[in-house]
Amino acid sequence: RSRTTFTAEQLEELEKAFERTHYPDIYTREELAQRTKLTEARVQVWFSNRRARWRK
């Protein structure tokens, strides 16, 4: 699998969701996946990476 490139629109959606919760449940992730046209797995990994960046 090659590296996922996120569009500005996708990042906006993901960042907005991250402001609400750092640990979205499966329903939230599924909804985000549909809205951003990404897979739920990509959304999950993005949140994991985003939390790592947030901790630094």
Rank of each mutant, 00 (worst) to 15 (best):
R1Q: 05
R1D: 12
R1A: 15
R1L: 07
R1I: 15
R1V: 05
R1F: 13
S2P: 04
S2K: 03
S2D: 14
S2F: 09
S2R: 07
R3Y: 15
R3E: 13
R3D: 14
R3K: 15
R3T: 15
R3V: 14
R3W: 10
R3H: 10
T4A: 05
T4N: 14
T4F: 13
T4K: 12
T5Y: 12
T5F: 13
T5S: 15
T5N: 15
T5M: 15
T5E: 15
T5R: 07
T5P: 10
F6P: 12
F6C: 07
F6V: 13
F6K: 10
F6R: 05
T7R: 05
T7E: 03
T7L: 04
T7K: 05
T7Y: 06
T7V: 06
T7S: 10
T7N: 06
A8Q: 12
A8P: 13
A8W: 06
A8I: 07
A8M: 08
A8E: 15
E9I: 05
E9R: 12
E9K: 11
E9Y: 11
E9G: 09
E9N: 07
E9V: 10
Q10H: 04
Q10W: 02
Q10R: 02
Q10V: 05
Q10T: 01
Q10K: 00
Q10N: 10
Q10L: 02
Q10M: 05
L11E: 14
L11Q: 06
L11D: 11
L11A: 06
L11C: 00
L11H: 11
L11W: 04
L11M: 12
E12T: 11
E12A: 12
E12H: 06
E12V: 08
E12K: 14
E12L: 10
E12M: 12
E12P: 02
E13W: 05
E13S: 08
E13A: 10
E13T: 07
E13V: 10
E13K: 10
E13F: 05
E13C: 13
E13Q: 10
E13H: 12
E13N: 04
L14E: 00
L14Q: 02
L14V: 03
L14Y: 03
L14M: 08
L14G: 01
L14C: 04
L14P: 03
E15N: 03
E15P: 00
E15L: 02
E15T: 02
E15H: 11
E15V: 04
E15F: 04
E15K: 11
K16I: 05
K16V: 06
K16M: 08
K16A: 10
K16G: 09
K16W: 09
K16E: 12
K16L: 09
K16T: 09
K16F: 03
K16R: 09
A17G: 08
A17M: 13
A17E: 15
A17Y: 08
A17W: 04
A17L: 10
A17D: 03
A17N: 05
F18C: 01
F18I: 00
F18Q: 02
F18T: 02
F18P: 00
F18S: 02
F18R: 01
E19T: 11
E19C: 09
E19P: 01
E19S: 08
E19Y: 03
R20F: 03
R20P: 01
R20K: 10
R20W: 10
R20M: 14
T21C: 14
T21N: 05
T21D: 13
T21G: 10
T21V: 10
T21R: 04
T21K: 05
T21A: 10
T21H: 02
H22M: 14
H22N: 06
H22C: 07
H22W: 04
H22Y: 07
Y23W: 08
Y23F: 12
Y23P: 04
Y23H: 07
Y23S: 06
Y23Q: 01
Y23L: 07
Y23G: 02
Y23T: 08
P24Q: 00
P24A: 05
P24R: 04
P24W: 00
P24H: 00
P24E: 11
D25P: 01
D25R: 01
D25V: 00
D25I: 01
I26D: 14
I26T: 09
I26L: 14
Y27K: 14
Y27D: 11
Y27W: 11
Y27I: 13
Y27N: 10
Y27Q: 07
Y27S: 15
T28Q: 13
T28N: 03
T28E: 13
T28P: 00
T28D: 12
T28K: 01
T28H: 03
T28G: 05
R29S: 06
R29L: 14
E30T: 09
E30Q: 12
E30G: 13
E30W: 08
E31I: 10
E31A: 12
E31Q: 08
E31Y: 09
L32R: 02
L32K: 00
L32P: 02
L32H: 04
A33I: 04
A33C: 04
A33K: 07
A33M: 12
A33E: 03
Q34L: 11
Q34I: 08
Q34T: 09
R35H: 02
R35G: 03
R35K: 15
R35Q: 06
R35P: 00
R35D: 06
T36W: 09
T36M: 15
T36N: 03
T36F: 06
T36C: 12
T36Y: 01
K37L: 04
K37R: 11
K37M: 09
L38T: 12
L38D: 04
L38E: 02
L38G: 03
L38C: 13
L38S: 13
L38V: 08
L38Q: 04
L38N: 04
T39C: 07
T39Q: 01
T39R: 01
T39G: 04
E40P: 04
E40T: 07
E40A: 11
E40G: 10
A41E: 15
A41K: 12
A41I: 00
A41Y: 06
A41T: 06
R42A: 15
R42S: 11
R42T: 11
R42D: 15
R42H: 13
R42I: 12
R42M: 15
R42G: 13
V43A: 02
V43S: 03
V43W: 05
V43G: 00
Q44H: 07
Q44R: 09
Q44D: 14
Q44L: 09
V45Y: 08
V45R: 07
V45G: 10
V45P: 04
V45S: 14
V45L: 14
V45N: 13
V45Q: 15
V45W: 11
W46Q: 00
W46A: 01
W46N: 02
W46Y: 06
W46R: 02
W46E: 01
W46K: 01
F47W: 02
F47T: 00
F47R: 01
F47Y: 06
F47H: 01
S48H: 14
S48R: 12
S48K: 15
S48A: 10
S48E: 13
S48Y: 08
S48T: 14
S48C: 09
N49C: 14
N49P: 04
N49K: 07
N49F: 07
N49V: 07
N49Y: 08
N49G: 12
R50T: 03
R50P: 00
R50D: 00
R50N: 03
R50E: 11
R51Q: 02
R51M: 01
R51L: 06
R51C: 03
R51S: 00
R51E: 00
R51H: 04
R51W: 01
A52C: 09
A52K: 07
A52E: 14
A52D: 08
A52S: 08
A52T: 07
A52Q: 09
R53M: 15
R53A: 14
R53H: 10
R53Y: 12
R53Q: 13
W54Q: 12
W54N: 13
W54D: 14
W54R: 09
R55T: 09
R55V: 07
R55N: 04
R55F: 15
R55D: 14
R55P: 04
K56M: 15
K56I: 07
K56V: 15
K56R: 12
